[in-house]
Each structure stands twice: as C-alpha cells, then as structure tokens.
Design a protein around this nucleic acid. Sequence first.
DNA 1: GTGGTCTAGACCACC
DNA 2: GTGGTCTAGACCACT
Lengths: 128, 128, 128, 128
Amino acid sequence: MVEFRVDRGGGLPAYLQLVQQAREALRLGWLRPGDKLPTVREVVATSGVNPNTVLKAYRELEFAGLVEARQGAGTFVKAALGSVEPEVMAELREQLGDWVRTARTAGLEDEDIHALVGVVLTGENNNG
Amino acid sequence: MVEFRVDRGGGLPAYLQLVQQAREALRLGWLRPGDKLPTVREVVATSGVNPNTVLKAYRELEFAGLVEARQGAGTFVKAALGSVEPEVMAELREQLGDWVRTARTAGLEDEDIHALVGVVLTGENNNG
Amino acid sequence: MVEFRVDRGGGLPAYLQLVQQAREALRLGWLRPGDKLPTVREVVATSGVNPNTVLKAYRELEFAGLVEARQGAGTFVKAALGSVEPEVMAELREQLGDWVRTARTAGLEDEDIHALVGVVLTGENNNG
Amino acid sequence: MVEFRVDRGGGLPAYLQLVQQAREALRLGWLRPGDKLPTVREVVATSGVNPNTVLKAYRELEFAGLVEARQGAGTFVKAALGSVEPEVMAELREQLGDWVRTARTAGLEDEDIHALVGVVLTGENNNG
DNA sequence: GTGGTCTAGACCACC
DNA sequence: GTGGTCTAGACCACT
C-alpha cells in the first residue's frame, strides 16, 4: 500500500504533494490498475492534513483519468502511467544507483544531483 | 549571466521557481560568489512576472544568506553552494547523460526519470 | 492578546515596527510559545496598515523562527526570547521606574533617556 | 569629533541613522553649539555611504534648525538639544550603569533592556 | 475565515 | 537606474 507524506512549510501546496506522489507511484509501477489508494481517513492519519485536502487531491487524480472513486468502496487506480517492464526498471535503477554512489563520493549532495538531472534532461548546455 | 524562466500554470508559485533556479545555478557553479544576479527589471522582462514576485524571491535568497542586495547596485552572490570541481562535474554529467539515453530508449519519460531519481536518492525500497 | 500600533511618518517602515513590537512582546514575556498572534485582519483593523504589510512582518518573524503560520488557523509563537522570571522582571522594572522619575525631574526627555541607555549599553565613553 | 557609523542591512535607512546619531550626540551634549560636524567626505570615508546620503542627512538636520551649513567652511551645530548639566548627566549615567549591571546579571540582554525602557517610558502596564 | 500568492502601480532610498 | 516599501485588491490553499 502506498503511503503519502506531506511536508508543510516548503511552500508547496499539500494537495499538490499528494497528487505528485500518486503520479510518482504510478510512474514507478508501485500503483497498478485496480490497486486501491489509501482511504481519505488513512491519509489524514498518516500525513496530518485536512480531509478536504485529500479529497481535492483525489478529485484532481480522478479528473486526470488516473483513478476512479467507487462510492462506499474507495478510490482505485484506473490507468497506468508508463509501461516499462519491471525487470527493465530494476536494471535502470541499479545503474542509476551506481552513478548516484559515484556522484555522492565526489561530494554532490542530493540537491546537486536533482539539479544536474534537471539540466541533463532539458539538454541545457552551460559547459561554455 | 543566469537567465530565469517562469512556468505559470504548474501550480508552483512563481517566486519559488525563481528561488529554486537560483539555488540550482549556485549548485552547479553557474553562479559564483561575487556574481551579479539579473536585476529585478531584467527578470521581469525575461520572465513576465511582477517585480514584487522577483523581489520576494531575492529576499528569500537573502534570508538564506546566499545573496546580498546592495541598494542602487544590484543583487550579488554571497555564498557558494557545493564546491565540486568543474571537471568532476562534467564527468558526472557525461555519465548521467549516458544513463538518461539508455532510460529513454527503454521508454522512460522525463517524469519517470525524475521519479526514479527521487526514489534512488531517498533509498526507498519498494521492490519487495 | 498583544495589540500592534503603527506610527506612520517616522520614516521607520511599518512592517519593521510590527516586527520590533512582536520581538519586544516576546522579550518581555507578553507573548509565550503557543500564543496566537492577532490575525492579519485584526492587525489591519487596529493599525490601519495594508494586509500585505502585516504578512511581510509575520513572514519575517517566521524566517527568524519565532512564530509559525498555520494555514487557516493563525500565526502562533514558536520560540521564546529571553527567559527571565516575571518577578525578577517586575523588580527590575520598578527600579528602572525610579531612575526614570529621577531623570525626568532632572530635565531629561524621553529621547534623552533612550540615547543615554543606548550609550550605557554600548559602553561608549565620551566623558573625556 | 563625533563619528558616524552606518549599519546596512537592518532595514533602517542610512540617512536616518545619521540623523538619529546626530540628534543623540546633541542630546547627550557630545555636540554643542558651534561645534563642527564631520565633513561629508569624512563621513563617507568612515561609514561607507554615498555622499548624497550624507548630504540628505545634513539637510534634514539643517531643516530642523539644529545645524547650519556654511559654504566652504563646513556644517556647524546651531542649537542645543536638552540642557542638563554635565554633572547631573554623569550622575544619572552612573546610576543607570548600576541598574544595567543588575539587569544583565539577571539575564537580560541589551534588546530586553531597550524593550523594558521603552515600556517604562510609555507607561504601559501589562502587569495584569 | 485563516494565511499565501500575485498583480499593478506609486513612491522612496540609494548609487 | 538600482533595490525597497507600501497599497489596493483579486484569487487560492487550507481549517
């Protein structure tokens, strides 16, 4: 079961954090079509946000066609995001893990790594 | 000179995007102590946000001790973030570029990649 | 409940006056951890400044780690400043009151007294 | 000779700091009618502000009737502020010094002391 | 009804 | 022409 966490104080709206974490879980295959999302009450209990905030996030996911709320039953995953085979994903993950270890050894912090990934993905070139 | 871009509509507050981009530039060494940040008016011109939004971002950076605003002169970088040698950074970047190419070939989209990086960094293990 | 007042026309920015009054209240124990600050709207009503000015002051206090803004709930004192016992404080206050009376009898105005306190505190010696 | 100091970064306008320091010097008798204020150049050299800023402060003092600018000669004190005898002032200062020592021993910091003085002067009563 | 974000625009302090 | 302060007011996130 996916578990949500909310970090207050970072400026990022709580409901957005929930939406992004759900999307991430879908991306990585932690959530697959048919899976049940935690109930609003469970999310409230584990993350400390207001029920309405959770509802808003779930509504947003439903609007995006990713989940489906079934009255009295809960909220369920409707569509998948990404379709990479688990084995391929695992392989990529291992390779990335190696690289991350190298980067950390070189002195990069997590924030540096995120920044570098962003740059490489957008293909910006500030190598001069 | 660093150039800021603001993507409205993503829910992420404009001033936060500016703060993060500045931090990223510091992280990657694009901005070094003593460097001048674009003036408020320049950012307004290139990104389309309101001057006060830029001021708020700059103030946040100042609070964090990263930059220093000098009345009538501009805003300048005060402290560095991270101190990895450019050559090392370039090497890491190349390796990461290779991995990204592999990942994309396997069908991962940018969002998948970001999610995977996040997971690997936090060391979460949902393989089981 | 602490009540803020803003004196326009003294050149001192309104938001700074609010910050200083809050700090003063914390210093003197009028505000203690957990206490609720007046809402933005209340301050607006009692002091006549703009809501954004109050927000700026509250944000500054939050940056300083003194208060905590809880969305939809209000702004609350997080940390104490100084920790002198109320009785000790009262005793000191009484002694100071005596001295002030003497000083005023001698012809000193409030501004003189403030100046003299500043000098004594910084230990400057221009008796020369 | 009075020496001005300017503390940037406190939010308080530089020219106001100069004005207040001049007033304080007049209050405490460090500057007496006929005395010469430091030249603009000297202030610039010792405080690091812009000449125009000093000029603005001196203009303000002149407007208040406290000083007088004599072309080519400098700026001179015209009027006194406060008229307490030096011996009385010294006596008060000594008494205040005793009280300050007591307060500091009790754990009060300078900021607490300033706050307390402000409260006693305005006669506010929050003793409950 | 709470605080937070953003805008448009005026005016000030400073270089 | 630089950053800083403040206003008026709209709209959003959250309790």
